[in-house]
C-alpha cells in the first residue's frame, strides 16, 4: 500500500516518529511512484522556501525599527521617584497655596476664640461677656457703696432718729 501525501509531508518536515519513519524510508526505497511523489513535494517545499524575504531587506528594516525604539521606548523608560523632574502648574499651585493659608489662618483664629471661653467645673453656663457684670459698670448702688456719714445724713433728712452704738464698747454712765 502506497504512502499518502500527509505522511510524506510529515516525513519531509522531519516530524514523523519511529517506527513510522523507518517504514516510510523502507517504502521509498523500493516504490518508484512514492519516491517520485516525495521528490515533487520536496521541490514544492524548496520553491516555497526560496520565496522567503531576503536578509538584506530584513537588516535595513531591523535597523530602522531599533532606532525608533531607542528614541521612544528607551528614552521614556521609568525614572525612579527621587530622580523625577518636578513639574508644577503655577496657577494651580498658587490656588492650592492660597486655599491652604486661608484654612490654616482661619482655623488658628477660630481655635483661639474658642479657648478664651472659661468654663469652671460644675457650672452649666460658661462665663463670658454676656453674663458677667463688672463692678464699675453696676447700674444700682448698694448700701456698701455709701459711707456711714452719708447714710446717717440721708436718714436724718428723712426724719429718722439714729442711735449709734459700737460693739464691745460700753456706754459711759455718769453718776448724778
Amino acid at each position: 500500500m502506497c504512502l499518502d501525501d500527509q505522511i510524506l509531508n510529515t516525513y519531509l518536515d522531519g516530524e514523523l516518529a519511529e517506527p513510522f519513519k523507518s517504514q516510510v524510508e523502507e517504502h521509498l526505497g523500493y516504490c518508484n511512484a512514492c519516491r517520485e511523489r516525495y521528490q515533487k513535494l520536496q521541490n514544492l517545499k524548496k520553491t516555497i522556501d526560496d520565496a522567503v524575504l531576503s536578509d538584506e531587506d530584513i537588516a535595513s528594516r531591523q535597523e530602522n525599527v531599533m532606532k525608533m525604539i531607542e528614541n521612544t521606548c528607551f528614552k521614556r523608560k521609568k525614572i525612579p521617584f527621587f530622580k523625577r523632574q518636578l513639574r508644577i502648574n503655577l496657577p494651580a499651585f498658587a490656588t492650592v497655596a492660597a486655599a491652604f493659608v486661608f484654612v490654616f489662618v482661619g482655623s488658628i483664629v477660630y481655635i483661639n476664640k474658642e479657648s478664651n471661653a472659661f468654663i469652671p467645673a460644675n457650672v452649666d453656663n460658661p462665663i463670658d461677656e454676656s453674663n458677667v457684670n463688672l463692678v464699675n459698670e453696676k447700674s444700682q448702688k448698694t448700701i456698701d457703696d455709701y459711707s456711714l456719714e452719708e447714710i446717717i445724713n440721708s436718714l436724718d433728712k428723712r426724719g429718722y432718729t439714729v442711735d449709734l452704738k459700737l460693739k464691745s464698747v460700753e456706754p459711759v454712765k455718769f453718776e448724778e
Partner: peptide, 12 residues
C-alpha cells in the same frame, strides 16, 4: 499536521 498538508496541496 493536517493544515500544513492541506496548505501545500492548495499551493501546488
Amino acid at each position: 499536521k493536517v493544515r500544513v498538508h492541506r496548505a501545500r496541496k492548495e499551493l501546488e
